[in-house]
């Protein structure tokens, strides 16, 4: 989702129009056949306390946020 706001900059006649915008998205990726191997191989060389057997780790899932903030001028 996003919002843009149009405004005028005083004393800058060469700019026809300006706007400020912000956009935010949230994405969720669900893998069907990619497992969280850190639960068996460990993280950065450190093994987990109770390593799972390969192939029994939970499926991996990724949540991410994406932010854009931008200013635009038309001339």
């Amino acid at each position: 989702m996003g919002a843009s706001y149009d405004f005028r900059i005083p004393r800058m006649a060469w700019i026809d129009r300006s706007s400020a915008s912000i956009r935010y998205s949230f994405l969720t990726v669900n893998y069907d056949d990619f497992r969280d191997a850190s639960q068996s191989l460990g993280k950065f060389g450190v093994l987990p306390d109770e390593p799972l057997a390969p192939g029994t780790e939970p499926l991996y899932k990724l949540d991410a946020s994406v932010l854009q903030i931008f200013f635009s001028i038309w001339f």
Partner: peptide
């Protein structure tokens, strides 16, 4: 409408 934004989100 905003090429700079579309280019970025396509890249993501």
């Amino acid at each position: 409408r905003d090429p700079i934004s579309q280019a970025y989100i396509d890249h993501v």
